[in-house]
Design a protein around this nucleic acid. Structure first.
Lengths: 208, 208
DNA sequence: TGATAAATTGACCACCTGGTCAATAGTGCT
DNA sequence: AGCACTATTGACCAGGTGGTCAATTTATCA
């Protein structure tokens, strides 16, 4: 009774994933205000009443989907962080960028929801979520940079907050660009490796 | 008859600016889909019929406002570029960032429309506009970087496209952050000078 | 002043939105 | 089979949207 997403969790798996799928598509293609519950309902092949029975409101549904996307991203990031713990900064950074690229390839719709959320508009609780994401990035990239500082690969007097911010800015923007290129334009002219090299070079030199 | 914004341009100046003002506010506070023509009309103190007489559709109106904002930005950028042509790269970059900060202070609503457009959603012609903006940035920052390369302040073998992209990413993200901080949070904890220093350091070292 | 033309109005349109709830279908138990 | 309980449906609601156009006000000129 307290948590009403229980109603949803008690559904048959197949039905759950039909619904989740429809939601992901809709929230990937439209931003929050424009996404339509009617479309979700039709896509999922259930009635409107049911959807609002499982999730009391659009914003609650959005929250569910967003958290699901975030969980997926986090798993990915944690994995690559742990796998690269022993590598020097530049190689480590390369792997991180590369795993971002890979994630986008595997989960383009989740990536789109993520970028929509970070860069855009008016999702509910946007401020709270963005703050949360920033803290996450601060912690994640902060650790990477701290490790490199400890090994004297980077300037030990770095302003860590700033460095994280810059790194985050470039990584996010690059991945966003990559995502958009993948989605539409001629993918052949995009030399991924060359870009990853450029990014690592900028930061290994710029922060040393 | 061909260009129907003529109808608008022939209005009394005072009325024009009342309308433009209302539009800027509405498009700054909401993204394209959510912005309401009714609100514009009420704010401007004119009838709906009139507005649709001056601009045949919402998207045409949006285009008018966006171009106006862009013109303002361009003027600003051109000015600072010319004024700093003689300065070394790091000083020049500082001035550019600083002028961005200043622009945001003077035109917060235009800045907001700009960030909405670049980072977000579903404005009409978004792709075309973003491509246009990228070309603009490529040309603008490209020149700054080329000048510095010519003076041996930066690595003469730089990949210019990449360098511009990175610089653009950090500048835009920083200004967006600044804009958001100005709009809501405690402005006192934000040490602008320290950040500008950090940005110039990252790029003078990273691209040298 | 009166007639003609141009500008302005706002009630109205079809359509879509998130959300509701009485009615119906389905399930499990005796 | 009959009962009780739950899950599901979709017509329906109030409110908002971009856009229209006959009717009215305002400006122009003889």
């Amino acid at each position: 009774m307290i948590s009403n997403t229980n109603k949803f969790k008690q559904l048959a798996e197949e039905k759950q994933s039909r619904i989740v799928n429809a939601c992901i598509s809709e929230f990937a293609e439209n931003d929050y205000e424009t996404a339509s519950m009617n479309t979700v309902v039709n896509q999922a092949g259930i009635s409107k009443g049911s959807l609002f029975n499982y999730f009391q409101s659009k914003s609650i549904l959005y929250n569910h989907i967003y958290k699901l996307a975030l969980r997926e991203v986090k798993t990915y990031l944690r994995k690559v962080r742990d796998e690269t713990a022993q590598l020097p900064f530049n190689e480590r950074l390369s792997k991180i960028v590369d795993s971002g690229v890979q994630f986008i390839g595997e989960h383009p719709r989740l990536a789109r929801i993520y970028f929509r959320l970070v860069y855009s508009g008016d999702s509910p609780n946007r401020e709270k979520i963005v703050t949360e994401l920033q803290a996450m990035s601060e912690e994640y990239l902060g650790n990477i940079i701290q490790d490199a500082m400890d090994r004297n690969e980077l300037d030990p007097n770095l302003d860590k907050t700033q460095s994280v911010f810059f790194l985050d800015a470039v990584l996010n923007r690059f991945l966003k660009e990559y995502h958009e290129v993948m989605n539409q334009r001629s993918q052949d002219t995009f030399d991924k490796e060359e870009w990853i090299k450029g990014i690592t070079k900028l930061f290994t030199k710029g922060l040393s």
